[in-house]
Amino acid sequence: MYTASDLRKGLRIKIDNDPYIVTEFNFVKPGKGQALYRCKLKNMMNGNQFERTFRSVDIFEAADMQEKKMQYLYQEEGKYCFMDNQNYEQVFLSADQVGEAQNFLLDNIEVEILFFEDRPLGISLPNFIDVVVTKADPWAKGDSVSGNTKPVTVQTGYQLQVPPFIEEGEKIRIDTRSGEYLTRVKG
C-alpha cells in the first residue's frame, strides 16, 4: 500500500483493477489549507490519461505487475525488441510503451519489462545509467566553473545540457527519471 505522500513520477498504482503510472506529480498546498497531491495518471492498459488530486489520507494499492529482467536487442519500425535470457523468448513494445526510456536504451542493456496478465506493458530502467558522450564542443579553458551549460549528444543519440568541462569521449551519469546530467564518471 502507498499513501499520497509516497506518490512520485513513475510510481505504478491500481485504480479500479487497472494499472496506472504516475506521469506527472506536484505537491501543492493552498494558504492554511491541506496538502494536496496533483497527479497526471496514465492507464497502462489503454494509454488513457487523466488528472487527479489526492489528499494525504488517501491510500493506494500497488499495481500488481510482474517484472521480468530482459535484454534490449534492437528497434525496427517503431517496435522495440527485448529478450528473456533464460528462455530466449522475445517480446515487442511500441514506442509509446517504451516512452522516454527510448532515450536511454543502450545496446544490450538489461531492463525490467512489466507484464500485466502476461501482456508486456512497459519498461523500467535503472535510475542511473552511464553513457559515453559522442559529440561535444571543446571546452574553452578559463570557462571552468561559470555555471554555464553546453549541449552534448550521447551514444544513444539523446541530447542534453552538461557542464562545459565535459569533453567528447568522456562518460557521464544520467538520471533516467529526469533525463538530466548528474555527474562525470571517471575511468
Partner: peptide, 12 residues
C-alpha cells in the same frame, strides 16, 4: 567540480 558548477550556475 560538479557541485561547484551547479552552485556557480545560481550566481545571478
Amino acid at each position: 567540480m560538479d557541485e561547484d558548477w551547479r552552485l556557480a550556475g545560481k550566481a545571478e
